[in-house]
Nucleic acid binder design. Structure first.
Ligand SMILES: [Mn+2]
Ligand SMILES: [Mn+2]
Ligand SMILES: [Zn+2]
Ligand SMILES: [Zn+2]
Lengths: 149, 149
DNA sequence: TATTTGTTTAGAATTATTCTAAACTGTTGA
DNA sequence: TCAACAGTTTAGAATAATTCTAAACAAATA
């Protein structure tokens, strides 16, 4: 079947692609096919926590042709641009978080799953005085959880 | 000069070595020369934060003959035994902490230095409900700091 | 002391991540 | 519309932290 999308694929794009293109250009990155594909995986539904490997597997499963090196490049560029946050939970791999707002995490040590804790559901009273001449760059709270008993 | 320590070196050991030996045996580890050397570096003065590489460099500088593999083995065994804690701050290397009590950290993103925050100098109000059937394994607060301006 | 079991270590292997450099593509100004 | 340029992708090599292997060695035990 021939659709309008197909016919005008060189000049027309769907909504999410336009939004993504703006988002990428907004941070000084070209809207390449690979970045749009990754962006669609990352920024289309709810917030996500991914690793380079998990995202690459997902892309491959979705029939997207993209190298692992490009996934690494894109994740690092997106992070540097503020489109993603890096979350420290596992010393053996780097997690990226599409939720860039200030929030915290549950980390299931049993299965490696990360869950967001909304910013307002936790309160850190930061009484300690900072070292001289230093300011806060960020506060991360990680609550490690495990199966009962 | 001939000292008592030297003469009786096979049967007598100094205080810190005896203490360390007990500590190691207490967790089911033999008090080998290498573990005692590492233990002396780790548990003699104030609390410390080290990486395998930094501790190995320190040992070498102190004239201690020990392989990097043994440092890795010992750090992992000490952690498993509860003599050390692993601290997540840098996705590219593993930090170990001689302070195993519940406490938190400042992490200077500029120079990589870790500083303890005493347990009572920070308060985390954990309002969020845990996922079903899960219990808390630990809570880590990391305050990333950087030079002013 | 002889035996056993745990430990150390050199060097190889593993693995996440980055790098290199050549092919390719998005952007832009004419 | 398109040439030219700068940015991007990628295969494969390189890097680096960490773990593994297996042989030599040392601590515990009887
Ligand atoms: Mn990184
Ligand atoms: Mn480890
Ligand atoms: Zn998150
Ligand atoms: Zn500490």
């Amino acid at each position: 079947m021939i659709t309008m999308e197909k016919v005008f694929s060189h000049t027309r794009q769907n909504d999410s692609t336009q939004t993504l293109t703006k988002k990428l250009r907004g941070v000084g990155l070209r809207a390449t096919r690979q970045r749009l594909d990754i962006g669609n995986l990352l920024f289309s539904g709810k917030d996500r926590h991914v690793t380079a490997e998990s995202l690459h597997d997902e892309a491959v499963a979705a029939g997207i042709r993209i190298s692992l090196a490009t996934i690494y490049n894109a994740l690092n560029q997106f992070r540097d641009a503020g489109l993603l946050r890096e979350v420290l939970v596992d010393p053996s791999r780097t997690y990226f978080d599409t939720n860039t707002s200030s929030h915290h995490h549950f980390f299931n040590v049993d299965n490696g799953h990360l869950t967001d804790i909304p910013h307002d559901e936790i309160s850190v009273s930061c009484l300690p005085t900072l070292p001289e001449g230093q300011i806060i760059d960020g506060v991360d709270v990680l609550i490690r959880i495990k199966p009962d008993a």
